[in-house]
């Protein structure tokens, strides 16, 4: 098997004296989805933030495409950031209310001082199934599902290899959820994207992920193929 795209080893994240993530190790290969599941407060989101180099870990290693991210300064991280991008739960909250959709999608490119080529924003919109006529709208004029597609288009702008999906569909209406998940599946199959997928919905995890890591009190207590996940795996609840 080829080298993993992301290799996290003995990751530790602390908030003051509280250890949120306690020696967590996992790896994700290109084209693969690893789901992180577990009760609220078990350290899933802290793991995601440290993986995205948005939270400095207290220990351990995060290797992405061969780069060790943990010791890097923000200046050194900046050229790598487009390669690993987050998609968050709240589709409206992730977008500036005053930026038109077109500009929201172009923003990450501009931040990289790589202004989008002619037609690039439109291509991204089409890729995520958004009508290009929506480009001049503001986020509040879009539905939740459309906003989440904008979030995905933004993440795709820098041609990422890894998306960290933190509850990407749990705020969406049931009738639009499947469409957004199908989009993520198609992007993975077309581009070999790797996903770190945080989700509460075990049936969804089993359908969408390849492997599942179960977290409890800051540790990964079990990793298994998603299809072997029992839908009652978490019934014992948090301690």
């Amino acid at each position: 098997m080829s080298d993993p795209l992301l290799k996290v080893t003995d990751l530790v994240v602390r908030y003051g004296r509280h250890t949120a993530v306690d020696r967590v190790s996992f790896e994700i290969h290109a084209g693969e989805t690893l789901a992180l599941i577990g009760p609220s407060g078990c350290g899933k989101s802290s793991t995601a933030l440290a993986t995205l180099a948005l939270r400095r870990p207290a220990g351990g290693s995060v290797r992405f495409e061969g780069h060790e991210l943990t010791g890097l300064r923000e200046r050194e991280l900046r050229p790598l950031r487009p390669r690993f991008q987050p998609v968050f739960q709240d589709p409206y909250g992730s977008l500036s209310p005053r930026l038109r959709i077109r500009d929201a999608i172009a923003e990450p490119l501009r931040a990289q001082r790589r202004p989008p080529a002619t037609g690039q924003v439109e291509t991204l919109m089409e890729t995520v199934g958004l009508d290009t006529s929506l480009g001049d709208r503001l986020p509040h004029e879009l539905s939740g599902g459309q906003c989440q597609r904008v979030g995905i288009a933004r993440a795709l702008a820098g041609e990422p290899r890894l998306l960290v999906l933190d509850e990407p569909v749990s705020a969406l209406d049931p009738s639009v959820r499947a469409g957004v998940l199908n989009l993520l599946t198609a992007l993975q199959e077309d581009r070999g994207l790797a996903y770190l997928f945080i989700c509460h919905d075990l049936a969804l995890v089993r359908h969408f992920a390849h492997r599942v890591a179960v977290m409890r009190q800051g540790r990964i207590v079990d990793t298994r193929p998603a299809r072997e996940l029992s839908l009652t795996a978490l019934d014992s609840g948090p301690a």
């Binding site: 939740g144 459309q146 209406d173 009738s175 639009v176 959820r177 499947a178 469409g179 599946t185 359908h207």
Partner: peptide, 11 residues
């Protein structure tokens, strides 16, 4: 099959 049947559009 990794695809879910989905309802196009929005309410």
């Amino acid at each position: 099959d990794r695809w879910l049947p989905s309802i196009d559009g929005a309410p």
